[in-house]
Amino acid sequence: MELCSFLTIDSFIRDPLTHDFMRKALLMSSLVAAVCGFLSSYLTLKGWALMGDAVSHSVMPGVVVAYALGLPFSLGAFIFGVGSVALIGFIKQKSRVKEDTVIGLVFTGFFALGIVLVSKIKSNIDLHSILFGSPLGISLSDVKQTIIISLLVVILLSIFRKDLMLYCFDPRHAKTVGINVFFLHYLLLTCLSLAAVVGLQSVGIILVVAMLITPGATAYLLTDKFDNMTVIAVLSAIISSLIGIYISFWFDLETGGSIVLAQTFIFLFAFLFAPRYGIFKLKKLFAGYK
């Protein structure tokens, strides 16, 4: 019966919008995608993909504890996100274990702690929505929190846009000219934790790292200018969110997974057809016709 609706693109797009929860999901997911996309430019250039994965998994116990205590979940997530990074730094410095090993063992430890905690206080927590996201079931208080955190991250990133770019590119020069590199390092980590917190509502803890790196990676293949990279990352993130949610609505698929899959397809498209850096270099193909 739904097939009839497919006959026009118009109804494909409009029908979901008649549902209140769909309008909310589309809006909130776009906002979250934009924030994560903005940040992803920095994370991919800094080489923090694994760090993004670590922080996003490590927020799990924070979310659980915050729910149990009736605190804003963002607060708990933030504390555990930053805490995991501090612990990674500490263990790395005090032992001979290699950094990627330390990152791997710390975040899985935190994640496991979160799962154990959920099983202990399961009464009011929906494990499935934490792990896989629930953009369609987002509550009003979550909406408020998400908007506040998103604005905060966007404002911070906008103010320190150029400093963060310099920090990713050449921290030694930044330090030499008196720019506070320590502050920028923790600023980027803070934004990462906060973005992971809002991102997990859309796609869940397990996949949130995709929101934090895929748009940046896609944009990196498409441009040689940092500002353009940020814009492309944000746009591709938003578009993937919208596509993902529509697809999941019409085909009854898991929403978080659909959003990330949409991002992956956009990346693959760039990987194959990016004008300069794609495998088939579209520019050259077109040039052949002239």
Binding site: L45, K162, R172, V177, F226, N228
Partner: peptide
Amino acid sequence: QTIAYVPQNEGIDSQFPISVWDVVMMGRYG
């Protein structure tokens, strides 16, 4: 801004999406 450091070519990410102008402008950031 007393000291300027000119890195080794190997010490920088040459694939960073940034132009000559932007790199030189970084000398003025401080």
